[in-house]
Amino acid sequence: MKSLAELKAIRERMQGQLGMREEGEDQTRVVVGMATCGIAAGARPVLNKFVELVQERGIKNTVVTQTGCIGICRFEPIVEIYEPGKPKVTYVHMTPEKAEEVVTRHLQGGQVVKDYVIPAMISVPQ
């Protein structure tokens, strides 16, 4: 059985670095829709992929978080990216593979991955 002793060791290593991470206005937020519609469409592996890659690649000032139903269920899984000073970008029909591309090209490369954003000319029923 994996025990809590290991966790203690992690804490001891981390202790010196506490307070280094601050939530601020210069933070980028990656928001994954995780209501029934999102989950049923495959949002969980998409969320996992973002969390994993942001951690693995040590991408700074970026938090991955979740929200409820965004309101356009037929486009799920949906991921919104909020960068300070820029308009929100909404990615639709996401998969873990597309998530990896968005991390590389958008979060790290600074370019919106146009192929995956919500089409401009859609009609959303009110």
Binding site: L4, L7, I10, R11, M14, R21, V63
Partner: peptide, 26 residues
């Protein structure tokens, strides 16, 4: 876990990884 961590976040990469492994291995 919170008690052991004394303020270190579950979202710290190492902690997050530990939680995943704890669940999977056990």
């Amino acid at each position: 876990m919170r008690e052991v961590l004394g303020g270190v976040s579950f979202n710290e990469p190492e902690v997050s990884q530990y939680i995943r492994e704890f669940l999977r291995e056990n």
